[in-house]
Each structure stands twice: as C-alpha cells, then as structure tokens.
Design a protein around this nucleic acid. Structure first.
Lengths: 141, 141
DNA sequence: GGCAAAATCATACTTTCGGGTGATGCATTC
DNA sequence: GAATGCATCACCCGAAAGTATGATTTTGCC
C-alpha cells in the first residue's frame, strides 16, 4: 500500500513537471503553438489511457471478488427445487452420497432420489457431468 | 460485427467533426488559445480513456483465451507421471473409466491402476475430489 | 547387460452410483 | 376433498468405481 501511494505520488510529480516544462518552453517561445497543442494532446491521451486502465482494472477486480451470483432464471426454468439444489451444492464440493446424507441429515436413499431428479433435469447421467453442467449454468460456484 | 463497425465509424466521424468545429472557432477567434488547449486536453483524455478501455478489454480477453498454463512444479513435486496426467485430464472432462480407456487405447484396468496412483498422490479417494484438487493445483484446466 | 521406473494388463473383491419402483406425510391449490 | 408438487425413505439390481495384488513389457540410464 505504502509503495503504491509513493508510486502514484511520483507519477503525479513527474506529470506536473512535464506540463510545467512544456508550458515554460511555450512561454519563452522555444516551441510554437501547434507543437504545444500536440504535446498537450499526447500528454492527455496518456493520462486517459492510464485512467482507463485504472477503471477497468478496478472493475475486473470487483468481478473477481464477487462471491457467487446464482442464476435463478436457469434454476427455475429447469425446475430444480431447494432441496435438490442443496444436494447439488454438496455434489460440487466432491462429496459422496453418504457424506451428503450426513451433512443434510437425511438418508442416503433420499440423496439418491434427489440426485436422480437433478440428473434428469440437467439431462446428464453422471455426477461429474452434473457438476460440470451446473457450474456452467451458474447453479453452483 | 456490422453493428460494431458502424458504431466505430460514427464515433470517429463525430470526433473528427468536434475537432474541426473547435479548430474553426479557434481560427475565427471566437475562443482563445487557453480554451482551445483545454478543449484539446479534454478531447484527448476521453480518447485516451477509450483507448485504455479497448486495450484492457482485449488483454482481459486474452487472459480468458489463454489455453492453460500447467503448474509443472506441483506436478513434479507430487510425482505424477505423463500417463497419469493424461488420465487426469480426461477425468476433468467428466469421462467414465471406460471412455478414458477407449480414448487412450488402453484397458479399463490400466485406467483404474493409473487412477489409484493419482488418488494416492493427490491424497484423495474419489474422482470428484481428485478433479477438484487437480484443478486447484492447476494440473488440469 | 542389468536395473529401476513407468506403463500395461489381469483377476478378484468391496463399495459406491444410478435407475426403477413404490410408499408416506405435508403443504398448496383448484 | 381431490390433485399436485415436494421431501422423505426403502428395496432391488446392475453398472461403475475403487482396492489389492501380481505379472509382463517398455523405456531410459548407468
């Protein structure tokens, strides 16, 4: 953090210096008006690029830090119930049917029933493919 | 695609128009030099931001399109062989043992043997957890 | 050539999955 | 009150996955 602040400060100082320098040359008429304008244009283009990068960098960071936004639309259109989603989530964590049953306090048979429904609704036949599809549909993280 | 080209063309046309307009006002001395320079500065800042966004957008796309950079360090430290990695990759695609055997032209028994080794090396006991761990270790995409 | 590691395959056995069927209880809805 | 959807559980069966053990071949290396 301290390093970042220092770098920003340094860049700002250099920027101001360059502007002052160009203005000085302009004032004592070493450079002409068109050259001055071109210099300003280049300088502010660079500034703009820098700003743009900062903005997009921050926005991309935000999207990475977003925990997880479930695709409720897909879930409803597929008709996947609350409990089925619970099971699906544990599936995504790589748990076995028995483990899922223990964590949800239900029988392993019930887990199987829920999974059968999920497989049908996702149109798959294996847990690994169900996880793949559910993840691509943003049903699970 | 056609739409994009059209939008870019329109933006370019408007930009040129604005520059021409400002220059015209400057020439007939409706606006003074400092105002002209500020206008140019603002214009090129906007241009810079736009450029910056374009650049970062492309770079972020690149990072998404980067095929996959395997973590060779982790692989070596775990002692996972070439063939085991082949099997692991197919595992990550959600294939069954039989499918993996067919694709690699080996017996299903061999697939099982390789998988047993992989499970031991990754310290897991199920294919789903192996996939999870291998992915987190950047052994597979 | 001989050794070690990797790759291949087989056999036998246990566990886990997945599909099918049916049943019960509970809440909502028509 | 009948119908519907959801959640729960059970039993059976076959397929797939995983474990253990041993054997053979291939390959790279000293």
């Amino acid at each position: 953090m301290k390093k970042t602040v220092f770098i920003y400060g340094a860049i700002l100082a250099i920027g101001v210096l360059v502007v002052e320098l160009i203005e000085h040359f302009y004032t004592i008429q070493i450079i002409s008006t068109p050259v001055y304008i071109v210099a300003v244009a280049i300088l502010f283009t660079v500034l703009g690029i820098w700003l743009g990068k900062k903005l997009t960098a921050r926005s991309s960071q935000d999207s990475e830090n977003t925990p997880f936004k479930r695709n409720e639309k897909a879930r409803k259109s597929l008709g996947i119930s609350d409990r089925e989603l619970d099971v699906l989530e544990h599936l995504g964590k790589g748990h076995s049917n028995q483990e899922i049953a223990n964590k949800l306090f239900i029988s392993i048979n019930t887990v199987k029933t829920h999974l059968s429904s999920v497989y049908q609704k996702l149109e798959v036949s294996r847990r690994s493919m169900a996880v793949k599809k559910a993840r691509s549909l943003k049903l699970i993280p």
